[in-house]
Design a protein around this nucleic acid. Structure first.
Length: 572
DNA sequence: GCCGTTTTCGGCCCGACTGTTTTCAGTCG
């Protein structure tokens, strides 16, 4: 079940959506949307707040605070219920169709009584949209095409899929004559865990050849929009890619604009307006004279707004503007800060590479220490035994001689059973340098049981790291249900680190929970969980998740020198 | 509906592209 903040934010967002369909004041709608974001991102649980406390949330005034009280008392908001009675849920669902927004949704609902996606498709096939103001033949085709796209799942893709595609597009476009610079931007640059469309920015005085080359890429199956400055295409697997070409002198302003988020851009542009300036993708201008002030680098744009450069993973209007103004931006952890990796597998269990190859890959990353943590016996399919574990330890000690610069740690990944117990007794566990413990089964326990289970794992003196704590698989398996604040308190109290697992379909602990956990004083392990040599490169996604959680190197135990890490692992 | 080292009222980010428009609304990011 979601936190009160998330449920309330969803209700306020629904209020904004429904008002945009009925034609409410645009600024009022924006105020609701802004408040919904602020509530979702607010660190305090709103269920413990009174009217005054609620009004302290940014973008929440008296009116919205009272709606939140309404929600806390009744589980819903009266105005939302009233609008739901007017606007069927299916009409709101219509706005999920690409090219169909609130105005067109209301038009077909009012004129034709259409109140669901299938009804709309049927109405188009029956020719009932003909003659409806604002609806021509092309609009009909676009809507049917949009419905078809929605049916094919499509949607967002994992970050590694988007990153690989972006890399290919950037490499191709960089070769085009006249291309001065080219890079990806958007949610991929902000390191969001999934990406809805890939944004690519290029600088050139002559956009024509870039647009040509872009639409001619082999994986492009459809050109959605084609203009002088912007072109959008769809790839064979349904992913949308936008190319924006700007003059070279606009590079910094364009990169800032195209990186987003939209909410962050609104904040920076508001700051500009208040200072008598105007910020667009072409630069920062004097609002009165139209004179260009700066545009060549992001740093210049931020500096002229009175802000330090803000790392893209923070650009979500989640407090980064306030922190920047106060000079309190965190020094975010980076890949180069990592001295070690505390979670990896070999072909002794379900890895695909040998111990020697995995260790060589770790050495190739320039690490100072590396833990091999194959699965423990209770995950019986992996066929681990005491003897195998001890034999591996001996092989690791032998291999150590060939890697003088890399300290090898012998660890294991334990299974947290439904009661919170783990494989092996205390005596055997004491023989490992590091123990990761993870949930691998019984994912659907209720919140109280799951919370007890995770807390008990933290309380085990031999458990150093909770692996992929929510056990989610993005798009395939929901996170387990737990009272996370309770788990975070236990992790902080017992000196148990929470993992940020680098697998692109895990990224677990997720960034929003990372940020919440940090407030409790929790420490983190940023690990690959590598099962193959190639998985080592996933570490950048875990670091991106840590950055989105506002973590500094000090928050991450595997940035620490080995002696400090060993002291932490003693759990005293 | 929110908010104020210019304001408690009058503002509220900015631009690209499409389609159906005789000059611009809707959608998107």
């Amino acid at each position: 079940m979601a936190r009160a903040n998330d449920e309330a934010a969803e209700l306020i967002q629904e209020l904004a959506d429904l008002l945009s369909i009925t034609g409410g004041d645009a600024y009022r709608i924006r105020a609701y949307e802004k408040a919904a974001r602020a509530i979702a991102g607010h660190p305090e649980d709103i269920s413990g707040l009174d009217l005054a406390g609620l009004k302290k949330i940014p973008a929440v005034g008296d009116a919205i605070a009272r709606k939140l009280l309404d929600y806390l008392a009744t589980g819903t908001i009266r105005q939302v219920e009233e609008l739901r009675a007017q606007i069927p849920a299916g009409v709101r669902a219509l706005t999920a169709i690409p090219t169909l927004g609130p105005k067109k949704a209301m038009a077909v609902h009012e004129a034709l009584g259409v109140s669901s996606v299938p009804e709309l498709a049927e109405a188009i096939r029956q020719g009932r949209l003909r003659g409806l103001r604002g609806f021509g033949a092309k609009t009909e085709r676009n809507i049917l095409h949009g419905i078809e796209l929605m049916r094919q799942a499509g949607g967002r893709v994992l970050i590694d899929v988007a990153a690989d595609l972006a890399e290919e597009v950037v490499a191709e476009l960089s070769r085009v004559a006249g291309c001065v610079r080219c890079t990806h931007a958007g949610s991929l640059r902000r390191m969001r865990e999934t990406v809805g469309d890939v944004d690519v920015l290029a600088a050139s005085a002559d956009p024509g050849p870039l647009m040509e080359a872009f639409t001619a890429l082999p994986f492009v199956t459809e050109v959605i929009a084609r203009g002088e400055k912007k072109t959008s295409v769809r790839t064979a697997r349904g992913l949308q890619v936008d190319l924006r070409v700007v003059p070279p002198e606009s590079w910094g302003a364009a990169l800032q604009y195209f990186t987003g988020s939209q909410a962050h851009n609104i904040r920076t542009r508001e700051i500009a307006v208040r200072a008598g300036l105007k910020l667009s993708e072409y630069g920062l201008f004097d609002a009165a004279t139209g004179e260009l002030i700066v545009s060549e680098t992001e740093e210049e744009v931020y500096r002229r707004l009175g802000l330090p450069w803000i790392p893209p993973p923070l650009r979500e209007d989640g407090g980064e503007i306030e922190a920047a103004l106060a000079g309190e931006l965190p020094r975010l952890v980076a890949v180069a800060d990592l001295r070690g990796d505390l979670h990896s597998h070999t072909d002794l269990t379900d890895g695909t590479a040998s111990l020697a190859d995995m260790v060589a890959a770790a050495a190739g990353r320039g690490l100072e220490y590396y833990a091999v943590t194959d699965h423990a016996p209770n995950l019986s399919m992996q066929r681990m035994t005491d003897d195998k574990a001890l034999a591996q330890r001996a092989r690791i000690r032998a291999l150590q001689e060939r890697h003088p610069g890399l300290t090898l740690l012998h660890g294991t990944e334990l299974n947290i059973d439904p009661d919170g117990g783990v494989d092996w007794d205390a005596g055997f566990l004491a023989g490992f340098d590091v123990c990761v413990a993870s949930v691998h089964s019984h994912f659907t326990q209720d919140r109280a049981a799951m919370t007890r289970r995770l807390v008990r794992a933290c309380e085990n003196p031999h458990v150093h790291v909770i692996g992929h704590p929510t056990a989610r698989l993005i798009g395939r398996r929901p996170p387990v249900d737990a009272d996370w604040d309770e788990v975070f308190r236990a992790a902080a109290r017992t000196g148990t680190a929470l993992e940020i697992d680098a697998f692109p379909d895990r990224l677990d602990l997720p960034a929003d929970l990372v940020r919440r956990a940090k407030r409790f004083g929790v420490k983190f392990a940023v690990d690959t969980d590598a099962h193959a040599v190639g998985h080592h490169r996933n570490i950048r996604y875990a670091v991106g998740t840590a950055q989105r959680g506002w973590l500094t190197p000090d928050d991450v135990i595997n940035t620490w020198p080995l002696d400090r890490l060993r002291a932490f692992l003693r759990k005293t």
